[in-house]
Design a protein around this nucleic acid. Structure first.
Length: 270
DNA sequence: CTCCATGTTTAGAA
DNA sequence: CTTCTAAACATGGA
């Protein structure tokens, strides 16, 4: 479930279970996940070293090794980072990168293998090359407004455009729109300045709450605040705010779930 | 078997 | 140049 809040949780897991410990063994799964490095080279680069620092930008997790290199992790649609106790259990299913430390172990897990694992020398250069916008939790209101400025098209497309703001995916975009009471097909051109500011604050509220709800726990969506849409996103469920039936629409090629009563279309929507 | 899925990239069409 | 759409990637789950 790797959007910004999920990746932030993975970062914290790595901080807690993988920092300052000698990497005793490395096991690479499907090498198609590897970016510009062979499994052998990656193993050699990690083994015997220790992680010293983590960074997250949007959906990317970067981990600095004691020799200055950075392990780069992107989780695609089904990636996860799971600690496990090798003395008690095997690595989780769909493990693609197993790291055994002098104490404990971590597994990068991915069913659909749409993520990327790499190794770079320069974290800043890597992020620059990814052409990401500012992290969605770090961007200021002014910068947010400025970046939305010369843009056309839909609000949802803007929120999920990683080059505009990094970290928001399809699920959290729906949540932000729900909290902002905007129909998923709302166009940017329909929003005035104060509505855009409200959107910014909805974005912050959602991401902050999600990061807090996830910290240290498993069933993330169920731990979100009661008035959040995401725990009710499955078919046939009702709006946590008004109790009315939720609806789904195809927006920009992806499913959008929303409450037609709380998020009515404006006349400027498509 | 069919359809859908939290992401990204790419090709082609507006 | 920007925006939108469909397809592709790879695979499991309903």
């Amino acid at each position: 479930m790797p959007e910004l809040p999920d990746v932030e949780l993975y970062r914290r897991r790595l901080e807690r279970h993988g920092l300052h410990r000698r990497i005793e063994a490395v096991e690479v799964g499907d090498t198609r996940l590897l970016a510009n490095i062979t499994g052998k080279a990656l193993s050699a680069a990690l083994a015997g070293h220790a992680f010293e620092e983590t960074r997250r930008h949007g959906k990317h997790l970067l981990v600095r090794l004691d020799d200055g290199h950075w392990l780069t992790l992107h989780f695609g649609m089904t990636g996860d980072l799971q600690p496990f106790a090798p003395s008690l259990e095997g690595a989780p299913d769909y493990n693609q990168l197993r790291l055994d430390f002098d104490r404990g172990a971590l597994a990068y897990v991915s069913r659909r293998k749409l993520g990327r694992i790499g190794l770079v020398e320069d974290a800043e250069a890597f992020l620059r090359a990814e052409a990401l916008g500012p992290d969605a939790l770090e961007v200021s209101e002014d910068t947010f407004l400025e970046r939305l400025g010369g843009r056309r098209g839909g609000v949802k497309a803007a929120l999920t455009d990683q080059s505009l703001f990094a970290g928001i995916g399809n699920l959290y975009a729906d949540e932000i729109l729900f909290q902002a009471r905007l129909h998923p097909k709302t166009k940017l051109s329909a929003l005035n300045r104060s509505e855009r500011r409200a959107l910014y604050h909805a974005m912050r509220k959602v991401l902050t709450a999600a990061v807090e709800a996830e910290a240290g726990s498993e069933r993330l969506l169920d731990r979100l605040p009661d008035d959040f849409l995401l725990p009710h996103r499955d078919a046939g469920q009702s709006c946590p705010r008004c109790g009315g039936p939720l609806k789904s629409l195809q927006v920009g090629g992806r499913r959008s779930t929303f409450c037609p009563r709380c998020q009515p279309p404006s006349n400027a929507d498509a």
